[in-house]
Design a protein around this nucleic acid. Structure first.
Lengths: 225, 225
DNA sequence: GCTGGAGTTAACGGCATGTGAAGCGTGGTT
DNA sequence: AACCACGCTTCACATGCCGTTAACTCCAGC
């Protein structure tokens, strides 16, 4: 499962750096933009989980940026929060009306901000998107619903196949040795024959396509997105 | 779509009335409780969309109440926000760690509160069947009246069946393990045989139709809309 | 061409779940 | 008090999926 992506948009470099530092420290994948125009463009490409927006910025202010993000379909699941010194009632209300999910007042206290960010992201499905985005290509593994989305199709995999796929796809590109796979999916105490893994890999290849699973002879298997 | 339900928990009647007035005016179905203990009990019965919690209360404080709400399966989709005069950093952080979705500082300004409440509930709109719509098709569960509407028919389910259905339907698509089901519906201390859950699932399938309940072998059951 | 690791296929059998019926306690009714 | 209806649980048996195995084929490197 990859890091959650946060896009931070503010025109003051000091603030950007300060907040970025604190969020990166918490394990988030943080990207930054210096004004609303650039922020919106980045958001469309990046499809972040959360966008933190300053209100007053050159080029395009936070309100406009928020509205534009809200109108962009692929960003429907993205959480948007303002981060500003403007605490007036009408400004807050305008923020929420623009479609924001939260309105955080400066000055920023790192720990409080982090708590709030975690709360905002907690509810968002931390789904295992693998290899690309929501545009139809690629693969999405949903451990909660126990289904795999593949080319718009919902696939129901048997338990072992699902767990094997989850394991391999958790770190695309990484080669998992047969021992590691056995230990993770079957458990350390269970003993099964050599061919068992092959058979399950084969079933996954049948259902999802050859291209996802690469054999590394003498080593193991890896998932490629 | 019925009104969204809000549960308001505070020990000061004046505040209760003030906030209730403003939320009712916006069209919400507002219920109130005077302390944490009562609040949690009401929440379990009412399955509200949002719980607004004061932190400092007699009997059981907001933090405890929040934690208990978070541990109650059927309330997993419920949004919890604190509403308090305690603005210290550590208090806010503790609130978020207890599982809250927002931490709103008193004094309350009606319009700002309403904006924030709308933002919190906006994201939740299309979730779940609990308190869903009477559109003829599908299913609606009314935890207050303890009644299930199904294809225009009013169904009276026995307690266990109703609770099982409520749990599964509270998060459509999500797979609930037998363990989780037992813990939520039967309680952690009760021991019942493996087949008991199956039998109840079967009864639900008989009454509502096979298509709603999907078995995930080796994992559990899920409700599908 | 030999060898070892991986791919393929089908068949077997276990085990999780489905099913019907019977037992048991409870609460209401006559 | 006896009876009954209902809800919950258990038991015994049926079923069918899914994981595993085994036997065979394929392929690459030496």
């Amino acid at each position: 499962m990859g890091k959650q992506r946060i896009l931070l948009v503010d025109d003051e470099p000091d603030i950007l750096e300060f907040i970025e530092y604190n969020l990166v420290k918490e394990g988030y994948d943080v990207h930054t933009a210096g004004n609303g125009r650039v922020g919106v463009e980045m958001a469309k490409k990046l499809l972040p989980d959360l966008v933190l927006l300053d209100v007053m910025m050159p080029e395009m202010d936070g309100m406009e940026a928020c509205a534009e993000i809200r109108e962009h379909g692929p960003l429907a699941q993205t959480v948007v929060a303002f981060l500003t010194a403007r605490g007036e009632d009408y400004s807050q209300i305008a923020g929420f009306e623009a479609g924001a999910d939260d309105y955080i007042l400066k000055p920023i206290k790192p720990k409080v901000l982090v708590s709030r960010v975690q709360a905002l992201l907690r509810r968002k499905k931390n789904s295992g998107y693998v290899g690309g985005s929501y545009d139809g290509t690629g693969l999405m593994i949903d451990p909660e619903r126990y289904v795999v989305m593949h080319q718009g199709q919902e696939l129901n995999l048997p338990k072992k196949e699902f767990e094997l796929l989850s394991l391999l796809a958790s770190q695309p590109g990484k080669v998992f040795s047969r021992e590691k796979i056995l230990a993770s999916v079957w458990g350390t105490d269970v003993v099964v024959g050599d061919r068992t893994i092959d058979v399950h890999i084969r079933k996954l290849r049948e259902k999802l396509g050859d291209e996802y699973f690469k054999t590394v002879k003498g080593v193991g298997y890896k998932f490629v997105g």
